[in-house]
Structure formats: structure tokens, C-alpha cells
């Protein structure tokens, strides 16, 4: 029975790419936790973790090992299945976005051209947006299954926060789509390589997107779902062991992925500024330099995430809602109208 009429080597290639991308995201997220502690230490004039291995480089491994060996506690009267589903979903939705990101150009290996992108779907931006909107389920389900009032409050905060900031994020994305005229992330990067980066056309849109990304990742100053001095631990109060680790870890993966998305949408993706790299090196070298360029931009944004966390104190909940509904959404609408007018006038 000929069930699959697809190219087997293509399937292998994509499978390999998925494994590489997922494991790379996991390792990068692991070292982001280390970087966070180091950056916090530098900003607070401390040394930070420096005991495990040279410069404390083995610290994330030690942390992971510690989490694995912790006792696992599942609270009584909670739905056990949903309690486990919560952190699993949080991790899943954090990883799913990486499927549509163009990580680099094209590599030629053994006579095959391999696109460094898992799926070039023609609705890439909407896919990202869809996965972001699903991201809240892990937190909500986990918090409800915990059967704890503090957890539930954290989950409800997360839900209303993410829905509120999704609107402004979506509207700022619409303005970007008006400029580029495509929904494919790959085409967006190609356009930026040919011309200026989108940040030139959409500075206000980028600012709105950045603020919303902070809120969507539950990062300080918008980390109200886990505000530890009001809600103990927020949505993950009842979690222990590696399930807690999954929740904490998914935050770092989200941070990494949203940094990549910001670099791709507004800062040219794997484009290297000011030089025409395609004319200078062979395609494979260009692709590798492209990946390095994307990672450099991403690292900068991850640093901005940490910088803000250790600089700006947490918002009050009404301030958060005020910022989202009364400032960011009108600003995003204004940005969309202005962009639409400009596109109509110039094109």
C-alpha cells in the first residue's frame, strides 16, 4: 500500500531540522537562565553564580539536576491529569512557534538545497499569533488544577493580561503587514534584505510590540500572574520538582522565541546589515554568518528583557490594564491608520 507519496529524504531533512531547532532552543533557554543570574548580578554589583564549573558555566545543569531530584507533590482534590497537562502545554506552546521561524538562508549539503526553516507557511505571522494566544492555556489549566486560591488568582490574571495585550500586539502587527504586504516570515526577511529593515518604517509599531512581548511572556514589569509578594508563587504555587521547572523553563523559551520573532519581524532576521554578503562568500558561509547574525540580534533582545527586569519594578494590576487598554491600543490604532495613509500615499 502506497500511503505516503512524499519524498523520504525531505521528511528526514525536516525531522533533523526539527530536532536541531528544538534542542538548540532548549540549550539556549537553559543558558538564558544562567545569563539572567549573571546579568542580575552585574546590575546589582554582585558576582553571581561562579561555583559550578569554570565561571559557573555548569550552573544550569546543576539547577536542572536539583529540580529532577526534588520531591514531586500533587495536591489532593486536584485533577491529576490537568495538573500534569498544565506545564506540558506551557512547554509545548513555547516550542511550537519555532516551526515557522526562518533561522537562516539556504545550505547546500550533498547536492541538496536545505532551507533553514521547518515550515514556510504562507500565514507565518498569523501562526505565531495563534500560538501566542494559546500560550495562556498551560497557565490557566495548571492554576485551576492546583485547587488553590492563589494559583487561581494568578491564572486569571495571566488570562486577562494576555488577552488584553494580544489586541495591541495584533494591531501593531497589522501595520507591519501593510508595509510588507506578506504574511510569510521568510518573504518578510527577503524584503528586508533587499531594502531597509522594518524598524525604519515601523518604529512605533516595534515599541508597542516590544511592550506587548513583555506582557505575553509574563516578564517583569508585567509578571503579575506570579507576583510573589501578593500571590506566594502565583500560578505555580502548588508545583514542585520538574513540573515547576517546566513552567519556569517555558518562560525562558518564550523569551528566546519572542526575541527571535522581534529580530525577524523588525530587524532583518538573518540579514547582515550594510554588506551584500551574497556577493562576497559562498552560499553555505553566508547561511552560517546569517544564523550568527540572527543569534546576535536575539541575544541583544534577551539582554533587554533582563535589563528591564532588574531595572523597572512590577506594575500594579490596574496600571497594567490602564497601559494596555488606554495607551497601547489607541497608540496601535493610530499607528495602523498612519501606516495605512502612508502606504496609500507613497505606493
Amino acid at each position: 500500500m502506497m500511503l505516503l507519496s512524499v519524498d523520504i529524504s525531505m521528511v528526514l531533512e525536516k525531522l533533523l531540522l526539527i530536532v536541531v531547532v528544538i534542542s538548540a532552543s532548549l540549550v539556549i533557554a537553559m543558558y538564558t537562565t544562567f545569563a539572567e543570574r549573571k546579568v542580575a548580578a552585574i546590575l546589582q554589583d554582585r558576582r553571581g553564580p561562579n561555583r559550578a564549573g569554570p565561571f559557573g558555566l555548569l550552573q544550569p545543569l546543576a539547577d536542572g539536576l536539583k529540580l529532577f531530584f526534588k520531591e514531586e507533590i500533587i495536591p489532593a482534590f486536584s485533577s491529576k491529569f490537568l495538573f500534569i497537562l498544565g506545564p506540558a502545554l506551557a512547554m509545548l506552546t513555547a516550542m511550537m512557534t519555532s516551526a515557522v521561524i526562518p533561522w537562516g538562508g539556504t545550505i547546500e549539503l550533498f547536492g541538496r538545497k536545505i532551507d533553514l526553516q521547518i515550515a514556510d507557511v504562507n500565514i507565518g505571522v498569523l501562526y505565531v499569533f495563534g500560538v501566542v494566544s494559546l500560550g495562556v492555556y498551560g497557565i490557566m489549566i495548571g492554576s485551576w488544577a492546583s485547587n488553590n486560591k492563589f494559583s487561581l488568582l494568578g491564572g486569571l490574571r495571566a488570562a486577562s493580561q494576555i488577552i488584553s495585550y494580544e489586541l495591541a500586539m495584533g494591531i501593531s502587527m497589522i501595520a507591519l503587514l501593510m508595509v510588507t504586504g506578506t504574511l510569510s516570515l521568510k518573504e518578510m526577511v527577503d524584503l528586508q534584505q533587499a531594502s531597509y529593515w522594518n524598524i525604519v518604517y515601523q518604529p512605533l509599531g516595534f515599541l508597542i510590540f516590544l511592550i506587548c512581548a513583555f506582557a505575553e511572556c509574563n516578564r517583569t514589569p508585567f509578571d503579575l500572574p506570579e507576583a510573589e509578594n501578593e500571590l506566594i508563587g502565583g500560578y505555580h504555587t502548588e508545583y514542585s520538582s520538574m513540573k515547576l521547572g517546566f513552567f519556569l523553563f517555558s518562560e525562558y523559551i518564550n523569551m528566546f522565541i519572542s526575541s527571535v520573532i522581534m529580530s525577524t519581524l523588525y530587524f532583518g532576521g538573518y540579514d547582515i546589515p550594510f554588506i551584500n554578503e551574497a556577493a562576497m562568500f559562498s552560499p553555505n558561509v553566508v547561511a552560517i554568518i546569517g544564523i550568527a547574525a540572527l543569534m546576535a540580534k536575539t541575544s541583544f533582545f534577551i539582554f533587554v528583557f533582563m535589563w528591564v527586569r532588574w531595572t523597572i519594578p512590577r506594575f500594579r494590576y490596574d496600571q497594567l490594564m490602564y497601559l494596555g487598554w488606554r495607551i497601547l491600543i489607541p497608540l496601535a490604532l493610530f499607528n495602523m491608520l498612519a501606516t495605512g495613509g502612508a502606504v496609500l500615499y507613497f505606493k
Partner: peptide, 15 residues
């Protein structure tokens, strides 16, 4: 369908 129903409306239902 995913963004509007699964991502927004059902979150409110669950809420």
C-alpha cells in the same frame, strides 16, 4: 478559527 475561538473566546469561557 484558532486565534478567535480557541485563543480568545474559549479562554474567556474557561475564565
Amino acid at each position: 478559527n484558532i486565534i478567535v475561538y480557541a485563543g480568545a473566546i474559549m479562554v474567556l469561557f474557561l475564565f
